[in-house]
Simulated assay, not measured.
Amino acid sequence: MFSDADAAELYDLLNPWNPVLWPSDAFYDELVMAAGSVLDVGCGTGSMLHRAREHGHTGRLVGLDPDRAALARARRRTDIEWVEGGAADARWDAEFDLATMVSHAFQCLVTDDDLRASLAAIRSALREGGRFAFETRHPQARAWEDWNPSHASEVTDASGRALRVWHEVESVAGDVVTFTGTAAELDGSVLRVDRTRLRFLDVVRLDGFLAEAGLAVEARYGDWHRGPVTDTSREIITVARRK
């Protein structure tokens, strides 16, 4: 009743890429438009790269994601390269000026081994001096405490079906949060439940992984207006450079 393609469409409805409305999107849009070649790791449905091309980016744009249904939507635009795979599967060698992981995709790297392999692959894909931009939710903000049915969203999909979407936390084990995302009709009939695990690294542990991978922190922000990281920051926004 609710396919992977439906889920990919729903993601775009709930998370439209719009740098005019959202400071987070504007932050990345500026970086992407200034870079000659861009690798978007965890590109999802490709909205960020679609917009870059639509607004005049003439360089190489590549999106990488393991989700086939999301890539099927991304591939509606054929003047961008789309590759199926995870971050650790990247096999490019010094080909990009910029790599990105947007929309908290970095937090999907849950294990130490996956983090190390992914960061090594991303570093290898960057040219000397190339930059890697990404964000992760600051654990001090405990964002998962708001992931419950009382914060549900309602949306109407392309077929005219009204849906209610919410998240519920199953467990918090160390710095890893496991939660479900549910899509249901307004009468409560559940159409789909997806389970996700995210890792909430603090600044010290994050920077340890970056340094180990040969990536030096060039800039660090606590909000999308480039303010510093403070004891009330909800984000850890990082621009790292290949050493």
Rank of each mutant, 00 (worst) to 15 (best):
V20F: 03
L71F: 12
L215P: 06
L198C: 04
F209M: 07
G42S: 08
R161S: 14
E84Y: 03
W17C: 11
G46L: 15
L49T: 12
D223V: 09
R192E: 04
V239F: 02
E212L: 12
V229F: 04
E168N: 07
R234Y: 01
D112S: 14
S24Q: 10
F200M: 06
W166P: 11
R226G: 07
T45H: 05
H225V: 07
Q107V: 07
M1S: 14
T238Q: 06
V193C: 11
V239W: 01
L13I: 07
L198T: 06
C108E: 04
G222T: 09
A87Y: 01
G160R: 08
P139T: 09
S103Y: 08
L206I: 09
S37Q: 03
Y221C: 13
A69H: 11
T78W: 02
W22N: 12
D67E: 11
E54S: 15
D6G: 13
A7H: 09
G85D: 04
R242C: 12
D207E: 14
A5K: 10
D114L: 15
F2W: 06
D175S: 14
M101P: 06
R142E: 12
A34P: 00
P149Q: 04
L163H: 05
R75D: 00
V110M: 10
R127H: 01
W82L: 14
G227C: 07
S124Q: 14
G85Q: 05
D113F: 10
I237G: 00
A141N: 03
S3W: 09
V165S: 05
A211I: 04
S159N: 12
A183E: 08
F96H: 03
V62E: 04
A183Q: 09
R76Y: 02
A141M: 02
F134Y: 06
A183G: 08
D12T: 08
H57L: 09
F132T: 06
V110E: 07
R68P: 06
N148R: 11
N15R: 11
D97I: 02
D146M: 01
G46P: 15
A219F: 03
G59N: 11
A52T: 02
R51Q: 15
Q140F: 01
S124Y: 01
M101V: 09
A117Q: 15
R241S: 11
E81G: 13
E135K: 10
A184G: 09
P149F: 03
H167T: 06
A35W: 00
L109V: 11
V229S: 07
G227F: 04
A117Y: 02
F96G: 03
M101S: 14
T182W: 06
T180E: 13
I122K: 05
A87R: 04
L14D: 00
H57F: 02
S37M: 05
T156G: 06
W144C: 05
L31R: 08
V217Y: 02
A141S: 14
A152Q: 12
W166N: 08
L61F: 08
P228W: 05
V176C: 06
S118W: 02
L186E: 08
A74S: 14
Y221A: 10
Y28H: 09
H57Y: 02
R164A: 10
A143L: 07
